[in-house]
Amino acid sequence: MMTSASVTPVLLGIPVATLALIVSLLSFSAALGALGWQIAKHRLDGGRPKVYLNAALWMPNSSILVNRSGKWELSTEGLHSPGCENIELAQLVVENPGRTAITVFTPGLAVEGTGKPDYSISPRGFELRTYGADRSTTETSVRLDPYDRVTFLMDYWSVVPQLLSEANGGGIQLRGCISVAGSNKLCKSRKRLAWNIPAGAWTARTDIEEIQPYTVIWRELFKANVKKHSSDDEEDGFPGFSLGVILRKAMQKFHERPNVSDFIDALRQAQREDELSELGPIMCAPLLASMDESLDRHEGHLSAWPTMPTRSA
């Protein structure tokens, strides 16, 4: 009995079945590549904000010093002295490098280390309108176009003492954070640049070892009297030079730290004596709660009570 062997089709010396397998694999690879590109394009085109947290030293109506490295430290060495009328803030920068507009809201600080479940907090913000790229807003919901950015300035020292008290003697870790419309996940600044604030911390500045009582009280008085928003027809609405003049006059009436009630009376008397003051009635009531607390927090780092505060930091 004779049998005939089947002949395998060959093309260019290669079995057709092998060629078909090669073509199938190439088609499959092309399909995976197209899928990967669609996923990448979706991520590139979609809103993907980047968040940065910087330490800042603000001299109202003058200038702002920002450490753009993201580290929790500030130094004015080699720079013009910031004077004693300054306030330490956290600068939160949000950028949208995607190709789709996004809405960001509730800027704040993500907190770790307090013994509570990780959460975020939004300190009081300040609006700066005439500071170029460092202009900031107090709006809590902002629409960002593609390749746009927004800056927030936050008074983080107003919440740090309470957060440290919740850490039971330990330190805390802060990261900038923002919520994005359509997502239930916070966008945070880089973890490796998180601010590690130890127990007993009182400043981010590395170039000073003490602070004037004048600066501590001025900060509280300034925050109580600054406008939350400036109108469209004016520049930044911050208390002017007269606020410092009145504070100095009030401090010169005492040779040592007075009680809060007596100091508030001295402030009001100094304002009545300052005929050139452009300020309205100074809001002094907040000092009843904040003056002693702030001075106590800087205990051990306060310089002597001056009769004539100098212009140093």
Rank of each mutant, 00 (worst) to 15 (best):
G46D: 15
L35V: 11
N61M: 06
G46S: 15
E85F: 00
V66T: 07
N86M: 06
E85R: 13
V51P: 06
K50E: 13
L92M: 10
I39G: 02
T76S: 14
L44Q: 15
A90H: 03
E95G: 00
R43Q: 15
S62Q: 13
I39F: 09
K71C: 01
Q91Y: 00
W72T: 00
G47V: 05
A31Q: 11
R48W: 05
A31P: 00
Y52A: 12
G78H: 06
H42M: 04
P82K: 00
P97V: 03
L79W: 03
K71M: 05
I87D: 12
L53R: 00
W72I: 01
S75K: 12
E85V: 03
G78A: 04
A30P: 03
T76Q: 09
V94I: 15
H80D: 13
Y52W: 03
N54K: 00
I87N: 09
V51D: 01
P60A: 07
P60T: 04
A90Q: 03
W58I: 04
L89V: 11
A34F: 13
A56C: 06
V94W: 01
R68Q: 11
L57D: 10
E73I: 02
G70W: 01
Q38S: 10
L89C: 11
D45K: 06
L92S: 02
S75D: 12
L92C: 05
L35A: 13
P97K: 08
I64P: 04
G47P: 15
N54E: 10
R68V: 03
Y52C: 02
L89T: 05
G78N: 05
G36M: 11
W58V: 10
P82C: 04
V93K: 15
A90M: 08
W58K: 05
E77L: 08
N61K: 11
W72C: 14
V66N: 05
G46N: 15
I39K: 14
N54R: 00
D45V: 11
G78T: 04
E88R: 06
P82L: 02
A56G: 09
I39P: 02
S63W: 13
G78C: 05
G83I: 04
W72G: 08
V51S: 02
G33T: 10
A30K: 07
L65W: 11
H42E: 13
G70E: 01
K50A: 06
I87H: 09
H80N: 12
I39C: 07
R68S: 08
L79F: 06
H42L: 09
N86R: 12
G47N: 04
P49Y: 04
A31D: 10
A55R: 08
N67L: 01
N96T: 02
G70L: 00
S75T: 12
Q91A: 12
L89I: 05
A90W: 03
A34C: 12
E88S: 04
M59V: 13
R43F: 08
N86D: 06
R68M: 05
D45G: 06
R48F: 07
A31M: 07
D45N: 08
G33D: 11
E95V: 02
L32M: 12
Y52L: 09
P60F: 08
T76G: 00
R68K: 08
I39D: 14
A30E: 10
L92A: 02
S69H: 03
P82T: 01
H80I: 08
A34H: 07
N86K: 05
L79N: 07
V51T: 01
E95I: 02
